[in-house]
Design a protein around this nucleic acid. Sequence first.
DNA 1: AGCAAATGGGAATGCGCTTTCCATCAATCC
DNA 2: GGATTGATGGAAAGCGCATTCCCATTTGCT
Lengths: 351, 351
Amino acid sequence: MAASTLAEVAKLAGVSPATASRVLNGSARTPGAGIAERVRKAAESLGYVPNLQAQALAKSSTGLIGLIVHDIADPYFSAIARGVQEAAHQKRRMVLLATTDGTPAGEKEAAAAFAARRADAIVIAGSRSHRAEDAAANQDLAAELERYCRNGGRLGVVGQGIIGLPEIDGYSTLPVPNEELARQLATELAAGHDGPFVIAAGPDGLATSDERVRGFQRGLADAGRPAAEVLHAAFNRDGGFDAGSRLAARLRAESARPCIFAGNDVMAIGVAAALRGDGLSVPEDAALAGFDDIEWLRDLQPELSTVGLPLEDIGRQVTLGALLDSGADPDGAASAGISGTVRLRRSTARA
Amino acid sequence: MAASTLAEVAKLAGVSPATASRVLNGSARTPGAGIAERVRKAAESLGYVPNLQAQALAKSSTGLIGLIVHDIADPYFSAIARGVQEAAHQKRRMVLLATTDGTPAGEKEAAAAFAARRADAIVIAGSRSHRAEDAAANQDLAAELERYCRNGGRLGVVGQGIIGLPEIDGYSTLPVPNEELARQLATELAAGHDGPFVIAAGPDGLATSDERVRGFQRGLADAGRPAAEVLHAAFNRDGGFDAGSRLAARLRAESARPCIFAGNDVMAIGVAAALRGDGLSVPEDAALAGFDDIEWLRDLQPELSTVGLPLEDIGRQVTLGALLDSGADPDGAASAGISGTVRLRRSTARA
DNA sequence: AGCAAATGGGAATGCGCTTTCCATCAATCC
DNA sequence: GGATTGATGGAAAGCGCATTCCCATTTGCT
């Protein structure tokens, strides 16, 4: 009942396994037309399906790309995943998925699993964490990845590099200018908003969030504005809701109309929901901006001011970059780096 | 530079590969404590990472689950993917991802790739297509999957069964009561809406869409209402926008306030955007309902009336179901089947 | 015609691991 | 005390395939 093998096909066609292999899978040498036809026919009649596992073992290249994300249902990650998938398909590879809930320990586990499967490349899309409690796991992760790269694996990371991982062959990072973009956002917002600024950020130590906060504060400083108060919460919708709730209570007490910068779009959604739940509305009672410009959130009302990031492209580029022949430095292709765009919409319109 | 092998570990530990295998990978037989310790130490010092490909080849079980979706960035699919991923993790498997853009041809290709990799199970989440132009591809798909199952593969499908695939060992379907839920939705909407109904559906022949349309119409009929006009468009946000645009033109001409049922939530988003672009608003100028209750869209304004589907659970159950030991019928676990809930919100409030 | 060079196919080896099947040795029994 | 278990480690045979040699033909040339 098991699938038929190359050997069976060869026998049926009356040739050697070597020949069968040569005709069925693209080899440098192509057997004669007559033989090829016989083999193909035999394969067809047996319903032969080549065993890629065995192929991989024989030629030590699996055609697998491991993708590590925090949560595949988060639109930020699923957009990147789409890009990765596209690039993988283009390069005739399959993508292997792992989710980590954002813990370095989970990333380490996933990396180990990918290494064990001898994935040709690993792509990591989640944010780094500088939190003290993650230090040990970060070290494990770095060690695991270093070994992976030393063994010939290729690694592409979105945004910041892996903490503690030295520059090593096969390891590449796709920088995302979070800080600079957040600075630009702050600059533009400062020009149109007189009140105070508040930041609904992710956990302290989450690199992506930290970068955005830092950039935003710098933008405010450049504009001669006082630093924004920073509220820390989970880096997702619920975290935003949480921060929004805390904020709402104060908003009704204070008179100033603040401008809230949420660390990412889904947090912004949460903030908006919390405010609305408290009878406050955007942009009347508070201006609100996010980050990422998530596709599904563009139809939200009021339209969310945010920073557009080419997420799909990020996924594509980091994958292609990782797959690049180890040879020359990655100045090939249109790897002009990632850039984003500040998009001011109604959620930060003047009251 | 290549990764070290079991044989190397064995040699370093001064034991046979067999023994090394037994201690490093869970075997029925466990070597003595002293030996085990030596082997473990050797593995550690060599940075040994077992080659799962080779393992898979040797014991003919890959620990892989293939997941086929239309588009991983679509929140409907990414929610299901999360469930699949969870179940896979729980069962110590990894998930292999493939996207198809909704064509049976793409699904066939993906299924073939998974079969070639000898995935333990394949999970298909996309909708079937009954379109005439897809008939040939459907047949190919069914043939591919039938062969896969015959060779011992396991297959789980969300919603409708694969067209042309006979009941066969290893093949299971997780029914989703689209029709019944759509009927309920229509019933409830009919009770609160006096005007005409319009359906913004997916392409004619797309099973999921067809089921929902059919159920909705039946609900209307049961309530003694005339059948709704059906507008066909792509089964995504842009399709909704398209349908919405066509509708908007007429709305301003006609006087009646219609209730629009979009085939899924993202289509509903598109419809809403189109209407808004034409200066029409929901629910004042038209009531609007969707289907799926996508998590990210719950914070939309006005809140969308829809049918809640436990997407993550669907992913989990179909995966677990597919993985089930071929033995007894799946009456184990809490596989009580999938059910949904009609959730009326402000988008269909009385004008 | 005679030889070198290409060409086309097969035998054999190995990829890294699991898993019988043996051989060994100590513990146990009558 | 010798025979019988039972446990334990090793040898070897695959798992399904790619690939390197190697040999027998052809082909091309002088």
